[in-house]
Amino acid sequence: MAGNNPNSKPMNLTLKVWRQKNSQATGKLETYNIKNISPEMSFLEMMDVLNEDLLLQGIDPVAFDHDCREGICGMCSLYINGRAHGPERGTTTCQLHMRKFSDGDTITIEPWRAGPFPILKDLCTDRSALDRIQQAGGYISVNTGGVPDANEIPIPKSIADKAFDAATCIQCGACVAACKNGSAMLFTSAKVSQLALLPQGKVERKTRVENMVAQMDKEGFGACTNIGSCAAECPVGISLENIAMLNREYINASFTSENV
């Protein structure tokens, strides 16, 4: 009972899925055949169908991270056919729909692969390194209460819009997974840019960029070589410009640092 495309035919697919019992175990790709997949299904709904099948056969279902299923929480991941979040640009895995695939396709599904994201089980990885980068300085140091009226500081619309664009990062980690160096520059730069653009964030801009970059390095993320896979694969379109901005902020901070 498809909503809009009554002619769409169900598909049969072959899935090659990364299975790994826990972080210590060795993993491998397992092959599963799956039938009657509606093109109206989301990719994760297809995974639900697979898991119900596996459960009934007494096989441990595939663990994968997901939560909101509307492209905003950033919990879903998956490397699908060699691409972070699959073949559709500007889309998280949860918003990818099976109409992008064809009957008879083989789909390879792997977890994010990056040193700082250890695999927990199957397709679930530990991305807490990204939280720790945020904790190193991704904030404006104001306590609750005692702040000025919201309209006291006018902010040009163009600046506010640009800050917003940077602020839409969902911290999914696709940029890291897509980068051959496993770099977290796009992710880190999004927060640095957002706060450096806004007048409220300028006060701490130097220490912020220094501390966040230091934490990024400490976590073992690779260096940026300006390839741009991160921005190409980012599901919410975080622009490469942010990395340029981070570099400017960082150089500026290095020369004029208050931390010397």
């Binding site: 404006i140 104001v142 919201a150 006018p154 040009p156 800050a163 806004l198």
Partner: peptide
Amino acid sequence: IDQCVAQGVPFARE
């Protein structure tokens, strides 16, 4: 609203 703006929440502006 005051608190969120102080934190750097990029609300829509005129």
